[in-house]
Amino acid sequence: MAKLLIVEDEKHQRELYAMEFEDEGYEVDQAVNGKEAVDLVKNNKYDLVIMDIRMPEMDGIEALGKILSRDKKIPIIIYTAYSNYKSNFMTWTADAYVTKSSNLGEIKDKVREILASRT
């Protein structure tokens, strides 16, 4: 089963995503900011990272750069409430950019799609 890393600073949101994706049958790890995410990716193997952008200590953009500089192949989905980060070229390096919604259908579809294309 595919292993996901969810990076999100807001506890309830992070736990919601974790529950939802576990319900879908994925193995889920959680990180509260970019820094923790970079550390986790260093020591574990993930099939996909779902990354928030605005976070304390290290934001998603920086973490994205650090993760990709270590492992270019790992798929990353930017998942944020901000739509205007699309103009930041760093986000172009991510595999997808999904705007947050209470309906998790879109992000779930995206994850499925990307993982399907990788196998």
Binding site: E10, H12, Q13, L16, Y17, A81, K100, S102, N103, L104
Partner: peptide
């Protein structure tokens, strides 16, 4: 997003 997610 959080509220809606939990409601769902």
């Amino acid at each position: 997003v959080t509220m809606g997610g939990y409601a769902r």
